[in-house]
Write a protein that binds this DNA or RNA. Structure first.
Length: 294
DNA sequence: TCCCAGGCGAAAG
DNA sequence: CTTTCGCATGGG
């Protein structure tokens, strides 16, 4: 069974760019719609102009607030105006008009980004699929079937051997340790919404496998801390190239530069630049003919 | 065979 | 304080 819901969004809003920019790992394009899994539900979402049509598996009483997750109620134009500090970011904003930062569930976000470390996106997705298959439960929507994200208690009980078999590698211990901590301290996690960026970051970095970058991803993608600027290899590279003449710069310096240069919503700048960097690389590697930005 | 991937933690400088 | 190194796994 499924429930249909419609939302009006304030443009610019791009479901496509938001789902494909690398902030989420469990969404797939499917004949003009997108199918995704959040918590115990499968969602099917379609955008037509300023309207989102959403179907959800399970009951209406489900605790996942999809409108909030999809950032369907806010207007990003003011934020974009604030980060629009130069020609580079301006181009990225134009290129991916409507890209939104969603609001993910803290649990799923923490685990997903622990898995993301020293890894690539196709493999991150595959590992999360595997994990869900073995530690989640079967769920379905309109004949389409999949598995829920594993519950904290399920992963807390897993063994290193079993997790390694799913391809987690050296991250298996991180996942188990962090799951146990999460189970013990779930109330503290919820309280992070009211904490400052620094306080919340210090706490998140107590989790095994969570350093500065992963903590910043969780703060940005699950807690709406838009001053978080996650610096991974791609962001490091493109900031060096665009703002430091290609000279080597440490992640710490990159973060400090970004916070000053793009302002209090620098997390949004990060996501546009991250997606923009991937776009530029694809053009360079393959079909260099279309839409060269030089 | 080498290189890379949305880094982290521990060790060394 | 900053820099360096090992880490599992799979794809290009």
């Amino acid at each position: 069974m499924s429930n249909g819901v419609k939302f009006r969004v304030k443009l610019p809003y791009s479901l496509k760019h938001s789902l494909e920019c690398g902030q989420v790992f469990r969404w797939e394009e499917c004949r003009g719609s997108y199918l995704g899994i959040i918590g115990d539900s499968i969602f099917k979402v379609k955008q037509r102009d300023n309207r989102l049509t959403i179907e959800q598996s399970g009951s209406l009483g489900s605790k996942t607030n999809i409108e909030d997750y999809l950032d369907a109620a806010s207007d990003i134009a003011p934020k974009l105006r604030e980060i629009d500090a130069d020609e580079n970011i301006h181009t990225a904003i134009e290129q991916f008009k409507g890209l939104r930062i969603f609001r993910q569930l803290p649990w799923e976000c923490i685990i997903s980004f622990i898995i993301s470390s020293y890894n690539n996106i196709p493999r991150i997705k595959a590992i999360i699929r595997n994990m869900s298959k073995f530690y989640g439960k079967r769920i379905s929507l309109n004949g389409y079937s999949d598995f829920s994200f594993p519950a904290p208690s399920s992963l807390a009980r897993a063994s290193v051997r079993d997790l390694r078999k799913l391809g987690l590698g050296f991250r298996a211990e991180y996942i188990i340790d962090s799951s146990r901590k999460f189970v013990k301290e779930e109330e503290r996690i919820a309280s992070l919404y009211e904490k400052t960026y620094e306080e919340a970051k210090n706490y998140l970095m107590e989790f095994s496998g969570v350093g500065e970058k992963v903590a910043d991803c969780v703060l940005l993608f699950a807690f709406k801390k838009y001053e978080a600027f996650p610096v991974d290899i791609r962001i490091n590279r493109i900031i060096e190239e665009l703002y430091f003449k290609g000279k080597k710069v440490s992640p710490k310096k990159i973060r400090e530069f970004a916070r000053k240069h793009f302002g209090r919503f620098c997390g949004y700048a990060q996501q546009y630049l991250y997606h923009y960097e991937g776009y530029r690389r694809r053009i360079k590697r393959g079909k260099g003919s279309l839409l060269c930005t030089e």
